[in-house]
Every structure is written in C-alpha cells, then in structure tokens.
Amino acid sequence: MKNYESLVKKIFPVFAMLLAISLFPVFLKNNYYLTIGCQAMLYCIVALGLNFIVGMSGMMTLGTGAVYGLGAYTSALLSTKLGVNPWLALIPVLVMGWLIGKGLGFPSLRVQFVYFSLVTIAFNEIVRNLLTNLEFTGSGTGVRNIPPYSIFGFEFNTQLRSYYLIFAFLVVFIIIALRIAKSKWRRAFIAVKDNPEALEVSGINVSSVKITAFTLSSIFGCVAGALYAHFNRYITPSTFTTDLSISFVVMLIIGGLGNFWGCILGAYVVAFLPQLLRSAGTSYKLIYAVLMMLAVILFPNGIMSDIRRSVGKLINNGKGFSKGGGIGENRTGN
C-alpha cells in the first residue's frame, strides 16, 4: 500500500489548494475581489502553460500577451459577429492556439536566446498593432457585448457564476499540467534547456519537442484568453500589450521557474498584490514595481523555492507533508 500512500501525499496539497480557491468566494463576496479572483485563475492557466516554455525549456518568450489576446479575439469575434455559441467557439480557439504554437515554435528553432525574446516582442507588437488598426477587429474600441457562456439557458453572467466556471477550467488545466509534469515530456522539455545536442543524439527530435512546448503553452494561453473575453464581456487591444506578456513571465520567476506551485503562487501574487498595495496611496504602482524588481533580483530561484526549503526543514522535523496544503491556503488568502 506504500504506493497508495505516496499518491495521497502527492495529491493532497493540490486538493487542499483547489479547495481553498473554491471556498474563496464564500469569504469575499465583494464583486471587486471576485473579479480579481477570476483574473488570478486565468493568470494561473496562462502561467501553467507558459511554464512549459519559460520554466522548463528555458526559452524567454515575451509574446504571451498576444497569444492571450488572439484567443480572446477569436472567441469574441466569432460569437458577436457570426453568432457562434461560445462553447463551439472554443474549437477555433484551440485551433488558433495550435497554429500560434507552430508559428512561434519555428523561430525558436533558428534564433538564440535574446534574439528570440526580440522576435516574440515583435510578434506581440504586430498583433497589438493589427488589432488596434484593423476595422474588422473593432479598432481601438475593441469588441463589446460579448455573450457569456451558458448551459441550457443558465448563463454565467455574474461574477460568482463566472468564478466557478473559470474554476472548473482551472481544475482541468491543472490536471493536464500535472500529468505532463509527471511524464516524459517534462524530462524532454528540461533536457532541451540543459543540453539540446545531447537530447538530439538520444534519438529525440529537439525541434518537435520545442514546438510541442509552444503548442501546449499557446493552447493554454488562448483558452484562458477566450474565457477572459466571455467573462469580461468586452475586450480592447490595449489590454494585450508587451507589459502583460512581461507580467506573465514575472509570475513564473517570482514563483520559481519550472515549478507547478510557483506558477500558482506567482499568478496570485501578480493579481492580488497591486490591489493590496492600493492602501499605500498613489504610489502603490511604484511600490509594486520595486517589489517585483527586488523579488526578481534577490530571489532568482523564486520565492517558492525558499518556502519549499523551509517547509522541507519542517517535514524533516517530522511534521508530515500536509504543511504543503497549508501554504496553498495562505496563498489564496493573499
């Protein structure tokens, strides 16, 4: 039965964290906090996807904002202009993610580190420019009156309802991310970062591994974007800037690269910290930026790795792994 026990140990913290997230609206009924809670969960989905590229494969992409935006626009335009059911629109969104993954994966095969960051920035700017200037995407005003998701006439049109809808998606994506993190794909992604040449002579096509990472990440990003469009009900191109792409990467770095818990922690910190700092007055954005910069410089391995180290010490003192779940709870309370 040892196997069973270790399984429980592994799943329990995840379960505790999901419970904490699902109970969040019970304690904070305020619509404002609910909106930020939704935002945080969407960030979680994007961060989990981005982790395959930045965290595991070690490629610095600064184009995630555009991926998120393209997902949002695909779903929003289909449902407003053609009247496609939002659920059906998820299929083109997935296709969109798949296409972006292939498209962004291609330059990653040819250009080196910083150059690749520049290509992705260019991608983000091209997309944002087109979204802002094309008439068909609604120019600068964006898309309005996007219908919400609905099942048999039950509309997910309030913050609370949307919260649980996004939560359901989050659960699905967490399961996918965890399964990938347990599989040979995680090893392949990390091997790409550590030593692509050695991976190649081990019989693995490095290009296809890289493109797989990008495809996965873009699909996560696009679906999150589509959820965002139907949750927020209107979208403007000014949301999907390079700054947004940067905050996605910052989430990963703050949490700790290549680490599942780090993604979740980072997403919640980036979503909630600015709101908490609002009480500090007009300079809260500056304080936030300084904190983020210091976090990146002082904890290059992520805050999560430091928490883990101290938790590890506690476990070694014989307190059991349930402590891991405790962190999850604290985090959502942020």
């Binding site: 090893r187 091997a191 970062k193 550590d194 030593n195 050695a198 019989g203 693995i204």
Partner: peptide, 20 residues
C-alpha cells in the same frame, strides 16, 4: 553532456524516450 537539472535516473529515462 548530461541534463544537469534532471536526476540521474531521469537522465537515463530520457535516453529511453524514443523507444517509448
């Protein structure tokens, strides 16, 4: 050329990936 951030066992498992 080993994969530094994988464990020794995982390094070996990468070698078997193409057969599986």
């Amino acid at each position: 050329k080993v994969f530094g951030s994988l464990t020794a066992l995982e390094n070996l498992m990468v070698g078997a990936m193409h057969n599986n």
